[in-house]
Amino acid sequence: MSGHSKWANIKHRKAAQDSKRGALFQKLVKAIIIAAKEGGGDPGANMRLKAAIERAKAVSVPAENIERAIKRGTGEIEGAIYEEVLYEAYGPGGIAVIIEATTDNKNRTTPEIRALLTRNGGSLGEAGCVSWNFSRRGVITIEGGVDEDELLLAVLDAGGEDLANEGDTFSVYTDPSAVHTVAEALKKQGYPVANAESQLLPKTTVSVSEKNMAAKIMKLLDALEEHDDVQNVACNVDIPDDVLESLDE
């Protein structure tokens, strides 16, 4: 699970930065609209909606914005019609990249994503060109300061599949359909759950320890995630912690 765990760790580090961006509110609102559109407006019966609401609340999206997004998704009030789009691409050094976006105008979003890739050493690929190397997993982030052996037992008892020590945090892996059930079980046992969601994780990874190449890759990932329509970005890169930390200096 080392490849999965490394990408989850990069995702966690980036999430802390993303939370400072003003565009995050709109991204989360779009996620709520899509979830409500697909599974209904009751978070008790729609786990995807429940997860989207929890992520929005975690960064203090106002309750009225959340409620309005749910009603837009269910059609109770009018608003833009969003669709989900998945882009497969290559990044610097030929790394595999998958971009999950939510847009009200695919004809606008697609050329913008292509331009971002081109400007940052990447290129848009055909459907299926890299998705074969990714699988969707449930990922639960547990904050550090807990006993690893006890946490592993709790994870297995709750129906989780694996645990990875990321240093400052732990990543719990589950079937995507079980991620929120497992997260709730861990919360009830007192474990500090920081995040719980389904993610696309690479089956195999490419190790990048050269700082300049790592910087190019992270610049591309940042540029993609800053785009208003992009919800998630996954890639098959494995960047050592010391290299990641050097990029922050």
Rank of each mutant, 00 (worst) to 15 (best):
P176W: 11
D175V: 02
K216S: 10
N133R: 13
M47A: 04
I217P: 04
L220T: 14
L49R: 02
M218Y: 01
C235H: 10
T103E: 00
A58K: 14
A115Y: 04
L244T: 01
K14Y: 11
V97N: 08
G39F: 15
L186V: 03
D104A: 12
R55L: 06
R72W: 12
A178P: 12
F170M: 06
Y90M: 10
V233W: 13
Q231G: 08
P92Y: 09
V29P: 08
E225F: 02
G91Q: 00
L224W: 13
K106H: 08
M47W: 13
V237E: 05
L247H: 14
R13S: 08
N236I: 02
V206P: 01
A63P: 13
K14S: 12
G145P: 10
A31G: 12
I34N: 07
Y173W: 09
K188F: 06
A115N: 04
I10S: 00
I77P: 09
L244Q: 06
T204P: 00
S2N: 11
A56I: 07
A215C: 04
E67T: 13
G160P: 05
P92T: 00
E126G: 05
R68N: 10
D248N: 12
G91N: 01
A8S: 05
I53C: 05
L156S: 10
A89V: 13
G75T: 04
F134S: 02
G44N: 14
G128W: 03
G40Y: 01
G79F: 15
S171V: 01
G44Q: 13
K216V: 03
V172P: 12
R108F: 13
L220G: 15
E83F: 14
L247S: 13
V237S: 02
V230K: 09
R48S: 08
L201W: 15
H4D: 10
K37S: 09
N107E: 15
D42N: 12
S198I: 08
G122K: 11
Q189R: 08
R68M: 15
R13M: 11
S5F: 07
E78W: 15
